Simulated scan of single mutants.
Amino acid sequence: MPTPHTPTAGTYQPTTLGEHLIPRHYTRWIKKTAWAVAIANIVLIISGGIVRLTGSGLGCDAWPRCTSDGSWTTTPEMGIHGMVEFGNRLLTFVLVAVTVIAFLAVLGVVFPKRLSPISFLWGLLVGARPEAYKAGGLGAWLESRGLVAPRSRYSDLFNLTLLLLWGIPVQAVVGGISVWLRLNPWMITAHYMLSALMIMLAGIYLNRVYRYFEGTAAREGLSPAGQSRGEDAYAPASAHLMRALGWIGVVLVVALMFMGTVTTGTGPHAGDAETHRHAFNPVWATRMHGTLVWVYCASVLGFFVLWKQKGWAPIFGKSLVFVLVVLGYQAVVGYTQYFNGLPIWLVEMHLIGSGIFALAASSLFERQLVLSSPAAREKAAGRVLTS
Score class of each variant (00 low, 15 high):
residue 33 T to N: 10
residue 55 G to A: 06
residue 47 S to N: 11
residue 26 Y to L: 11
residue 46 I to N: 12
residue 34 A to L: 09
residue 36 A to C: 02
residue 43 V to G: 01
residue 43 V to R: 00
residue 69 D to M: 01
residue 34 A to S: 15
residue 34 A to G: 15
residue 20 H to C: 00
residue 61 D to L: 09
residue 20 H to M: 11
residue 64 P to N: 08
residue 58 L to S: 02
residue 48 G to V: 08
residue 57 G to P: 08
residue 68 S to L: 14
residue 50 I to Q: 08
residue 74 T to K: 00
residue 68 S to N: 13
residue 60 C to I: 07
residue 27 T to N: 06
residue 69 D to K: 04
residue 56 S to H: 02
residue 19 E to M: 10
residue 63 W to V: 08
residue 34 A to E: 14
residue 56 S to L: 09
residue 73 T to N: 14
residue 27 T to V: 02
residue 57 G to C: 09
residue 45 I to G: 13
residue 26 Y to S: 01
residue 54 T to I: 08
residue 39 I to C: 01
residue 40 A to S: 13
residue 55 G to L: 04
residue 19 E to R: 14
residue 32 K to T: 04
residue 66 C to Y: 11
residue 46 I to H: 04
residue 51 V to P: 05
residue 59 G to L: 02
residue 47 S to C: 05
residue 40 A to I: 10
residue 56 S to P: 06
residue 74 T to S: 03
residue 45 I to K: 06
residue 34 A to D: 14
residue 68 S to R: 15
residue 65 R to I: 01
residue 37 V to N: 04
residue 24 R to W: 02
residue 24 R to S: 07
residue 33 T to V: 07
residue 32 K to D: 04
residue 42 I to F: 10
residue 54 T to Y: 10
residue 71 S to T: 05
residue 47 S to I: 15
residue 56 S to K: 09
residue 31 K to D: 09
residue 21 L to R: 05
residue 24 R to N: 04
residue 37 V to P: 05
residue 39 I to T: 03
residue 70 G to M: 06
residue 63 W to L: 05
residue 21 L to T: 10
residue 72 W to I: 06
residue 30 I to R: 01
residue 30 I to L: 09
residue 57 G to N: 10
residue 57 G to T: 07
residue 54 T to R: 09
residue 68 S to F: 12
residue 55 G to T: 01
residue 42 I to G: 05
residue 43 V to Q: 01
residue 25 H to W: 14
residue 57 G to D: 07
residue 32 K to I: 09
residue 28 R to M: 07
residue 23 P to Q: 11
residue 68 S to Y: 08
residue 71 S to H: 13
residue 19 E to K: 13
residue 58 L to R: 06
residue 47 S to A: 15
residue 55 G to W: 02
residue 48 G to A: 07
residue 22 I to Q: 13
residue 20 H to F: 12
residue 42 I to D: 04
residue 44 L to E: 10
residue 74 T to L: 01
residue 20 H to N: 06
residue 70 G to S: 07
residue 22 I to D: 12
residue 57 G to S: 09
residue 25 H to F: 15
residue 21 L to F: 14
residue 26 Y to C: 07
residue 55 G to E: 02
residue 43 V to T: 01
residue 57 G to E: 04
residue 59 G to Y: 02
residue 36 A to S: 11
residue 30 I to D: 08
residue 58 L to K: 02
residue 39 I to D: 01
residue 28 R to A: 05
residue 39 I to Q: 00
residue 64 P to F: 06
residue 73 T to V: 15
residue 73 T to E: 12
residue 25 H to N: 11
residue 65 R to H: 02
residue 59 G to W: 03
residue 70 G to V: 03
residue 45 I to S: 13
residue 19 E to D: 15
residue 50 I to G: 14
residue 61 D to Y: 08
residue 38 A to D: 03
residue 64 P to S: 04
residue 27 T to F: 09
residue 47 S to V: 15
residue 59 G to F: 06
residue 66 C to T: 10
residue 24 R to I: 01
residue 30 I to V: 14
residue 61 D to E: 15
residue 41 N to F: 08
residue 52 R to Q: 03
residue 68 S to T: 14
residue 74 T to H: 03
residue 64 P to T: 03
residue 27 T to H: 09
residue 42 I to P: 04
residue 31 K to N: 14
residue 59 G to K: 02
residue 45 I to Q: 13
residue 43 V to N: 00
residue 48 G to Q: 07
residue 54 T to M: 09
residue 38 A to W: 06
residue 36 A to G: 12
